[in-house]
């Protein structure tokens, strides 16, 4: 682990988004996503404006759009749920062709779809432009309780080691002709999982001993990044713009679903 190595979760680059101190960027992300979540249902013009902001962020970050789209898969099931809402919601219904759709479900489903996609894209951009190591430092700086920061840093440090262990175990199984096809293969997989637990646990014990013998007392020295007033100003641009959009959308009755 001594040599510098890239991280599969991080898209290397030098854009403004990459350079912004992570603790400030995280606050900015939280503020922006909060504005998106707080926007009332059916304010289509506001969501369109957020979409422009997110698209601008993608362009500024120099992260390829394909890469961003490829990492959106965790929200796919929820996009499905959003599309189901018009059919299953209660309340007043309208007939569109041969199907009857719930008005509240249409509004709620469309709003949900937009919110989920906008927030998830912003989160992907944050993740892609942030190195995991910097993330731990930022959470420490934002006063996440020390033990949680420690657990988090251990998790990120050993994530690839243990993921590789899983990969090696499945290669070992495959090279002996094992292929999981049906539930009758579960015992093999579950035993693999048991072995993985024992290996992880023992690794934890070894790491702890190694650290204690080098003077570990339950705290890791961490250097905090500082953000200048200008950098905070840059970070504030996105949530402030979004908040302005929301304010205008609330005041002006345009671009809303009836």
């Amino acid at each position: 682990m001594g040599a510098p190595h890239g991280h599969p979760l991080h898209y290397h680059g030098h854009s403004v988004l990459h350079r912004t101190p992570v603790h400030a960027k995280l606050i900015g992300l939280l503020a922006f996503v909060s504005v998106i979540v707080l926007t009332p249902g059916g304010y289509l013009l506001a969501f369109a404006a957020y979409g422009v902001i997110v698209a601008a962020l993608v362009v500024v970050s120099h992260v390829p759009a394909r890469y961003v789209l490829g990492r959106l898969w965790p929200v796919v099931p929820f996009v499905g749920v959003a599309m189901l809402l018009p059919f299953i919601a209660t309340g007043e219904r309208i007939d569109v062709g041969a199907v009857s759709l719930a008005v509240e479900g249409l509004r709620g489903g469309l709003t949900l779809l937009l919110k989920v996609l906008l927030a998830a894209t912003s989160a992907v951009l944050f993740a892609a432009t942030t190195e995991p190591r910097e993330l731990v430092r930022a959470l420490d700086q934002l006063r996440l309780p020390q033990p949680l920061v420690q657990i988090l840093s251990f998790m990120l440090r050993y994530l690839e080691v243990v993921s590789d262990e899983v990969r090696r175990m499945s290669i070992a199984l495959a090279s002996r002709g094992f292929r999981a096809r049906s539930p009758k293969h579960w015992p093999v997989l579950a035993r693999t999982m048991g072995a993985l637990f024992i290996r992880s646990y023992e690794r934890g014990e070894r790491v702890h001993l190694a650290m204690v013998s080098r003077g570990y007392t339950g705290r890791m020295p961490m250097q905090h990044a500082s953000a200048s007033a200008r950098e905070w100003g840059t970070v504030a641009v996105v949530p402030v713009l979004a908040a302005l959009v929301l304010l205008i959308a609330v005041l002006l009755p345009i671009g809303r679903l009836p």
Partner: peptide, 20 residues
């Protein structure tokens, strides 16, 4: 910290094992 961290990694990695 070290053990809970490794347990967290274990849970994460165990979720990578797909059960058909």
């Amino acid at each position: 910290a070290p053990l809970a961290g490794l347990v967290a990694v274990f849970v994460f990695a165990a979720q990578m094992i797909n059960f058909p």
